[in-house]
């Protein structure tokens, strides 16, 4: 299984770290511009397949952010997917985590098609915005009224 996924920049600063299990064994990484994508895994994964998986991950990020760069990852936590709701601060989706969770689930490779991943991520974003837009207005209004 996959033990951990890490993304760090060339200075060694972590931009993403996700652990599925706390034993390490083998490791592959791929270097894109200022970022290193690292996968830690054990003997039940194939090294080249893991490299491909990094490729899938980066491809998906690329589709999501239109030419992904380090700053996208830094701000991924607050990057808003649907621009029309961008005024609402709660619309943050942990973009990278969402993407990663669709690709790797509990250390198992779940989805290797970036289009499928994108579909799910879009769906989740829509759901989030929907759940917020419904309740935000009444709440704000009632708040002001009480005042």
């Amino acid at each position: 299984m996959i033990r951990a996924v890490m993304v760090m920049n060339t200075q060694g600063k972590a931009r993403l770290a996700k652990f599925y299990d706390f034993q390490d064994s083998r490791l592959v990484y791929k270097h894109y511009a200022t970022l290193y994508f690292v996968l830690v895994f054990d003997s039940s994964e194939n090294e080249l397949a893991m490299l491909d998986l990094i490729q899938v991950f980066v491809e998906t990020l690329d589709k999501c952010f239109k030419n992904v760069c380090e700053l996208d990852l830094v701000f991924n936590y607050s990057k808003v997917f649907n621009d029309e709701f961008s005024l609402n601060p709660i619309l943050t989706g942990e973009k990278i985590h969402t993407i990663l969770d669709e690709i790797i689930f509990g250390g198992q490779v779940l989805e290797t098609s970036s289009t499928e991943v994108m579909k799910a991520v879009e769906e989740i974003s829509r759901l989030e915005t929907a759940s917020n837009s419904i309740t935000l207005v009444p709440k704000a209004v009632s708040g002001w009224r009480n005042r």
Binding site: S78, P89, I90, T92, G143, R147
Partner: peptide, 16 residues
């Protein structure tokens, strides 16, 4: 109390 929560909501720093 309510207004403070409203204030919090609007002036709370979010993750970004």
């Amino acid at each position: 109390g309510t207004s403070s929560s409203i204030m919090e909501t609007f002036f709370q720093r979010n993750l970004e």
